[in-house]
Design a protein around this nucleic acid. Structure first.
Length: 322
DNA sequence: GCATGTCAAGTTGTG
DNA sequence: CACAACTTGACATGC
């Protein structure tokens, strides 16, 4: 019997010996073209293998979703040292590995997603920024299709010129996406500029679902209750499984800055409105799979009781408040 | 082997 | 105008 909440891990593991490789433009630019291709090809192959291993580890741990790092094919969209997968993978070995990872994910009922970082601003006032954002989203959409990821989530972006004008630009930006990117696109409320209420009208009009981040909502409230936002966001998924994010403030809610993420999710931050709901929830916590499995245990254990102790680790007990 | 400086990208807010 | 905050580790290199 499937549990109602599908818990998600973001991008990497703490305990499992699975590592994704990265690359810097400065380094690869100093290599001869052939050596550069070989270097990047090795990273791509290793990262595809790491993704396959990640799927296995998530299944072993009972984790139901995995966010794929934007750097899975590092520098792919760089204006100078960028490349496309077939160009560095002529015999298709790496592509086959990606497909295998995707098939393993489907077999394990593991939901895959992408989340481009802050450089993707579809509604920038600068055309060059919009163009590179489209390019980045198209690259992620290509990999998403390859591995069967159904969600690429990004933020509302800029508010320059006023929120209304910026939302208008966002709509134009979304229109520039290919079908492949658009069907996977989702918007997420952020902690400074765009609250759920700011994005919901656009989401409804364009049929773009809203990924509801409850931590961001608590940092930037909009008059909607957590329950109202949860329901409104869920409706934008139009029958697909809704997607949410959760995290706890590193220094507590009363801190001058409640935005940085804590190592673990405090059970007190888990919304009551999420109990018994069918939904994917990415756990954005520094302690990665430890935090995901800890939360799964705590929620699954029924009554809201603080766990006695946490698995031995770097900073044991640091979140318990002394 | 370990410490270190560096890393493609945007936007906003502060000093 | 310059810079930090977002986040943040991982890379190659130099000792």
């Amino acid at each position: 019997m499937k549990v109602s909440i599908r818990y998600g891990l973001c991008c990497q593991f703490l305990d499992a010996p699975i590592r994704f490789r990265a690359a810097t433009h400065r380094y690869v630019w100093g290599l001869e073209p052939a050596a550069r291709r070989e270097y990047l090809a090795g990273i791509a192959r290793d990262n595809a293998a790491a993704l396959l291993a990640s799927v296995g580890e998530c299944r072993r741990l009972g984790i139901g979703a995995f966010r794929i790092n934007s750097g899975i094919l590092p520098l792919s969209t760089h204006p100078a040292s960028g490349y496309r997968l077939p160009g560095i993978d002529p015999d298709g070995t790496t592509e086959a590995l990606f497909r295998e990872a995707g098939e393993a994910a489907r077999a394990a009922d593991l939901r895959l997603s992408f989340h481009p970082d802050q450089f993707v601003v579809l509604n920038s006032e600068r055309e060059a920024v919009v163009a590179s954002s489209v390019s980045e989203l198209e690259y992620q959409a290509a990999v998403a299709k390859l591995v069967g990821a159904d969600v690429i989530v990004f933020h509302g972006g800029s508010t320059a010129g006023g929120r209304d004008a910026a939302l208008e630009r966002l709509e134009r930006g979304i229109e520039r996406l290919s079908e492949r990117a658009r069907v996977r696109a989702a918007l997420e409320n952020d902690d400074r500029q765009y609250a759920p209420a700011d994005l919901l009208p656009l989401c409804r009009r364009l049929g773009i679902p809203l990924v509801y981040d409850v931590h961001h909502h608590r940092c930037r409230p909009d008059g909607l209750s957590v329950e109202e936002a949860t329901l409104a966001a869920a409706e934008t998924w139009n029958g697909r499984e809704p997607y949410s994010h959760i995290s706890s403030p590193r220094d507590g809610w009363d801190a001058a800055n409640p935005r940085p993420h804590a190592d673990y999710v405090d059970l007190a931050d888990w919304p009551d409105a999420w109990r018994g709901v069918r939904m994917t929830v990415d756990v954005e916590a520094k302690d990665k799979e430890r935090a995901v499995t800890a939360l799964m245990r705590e929620i699954g254990s029924g009554p809201v009781v603080k766990p006695r102790g946490r698995k031995s680790g770097r900073k044991a007990g640091q979140t318990s408040g002394g």
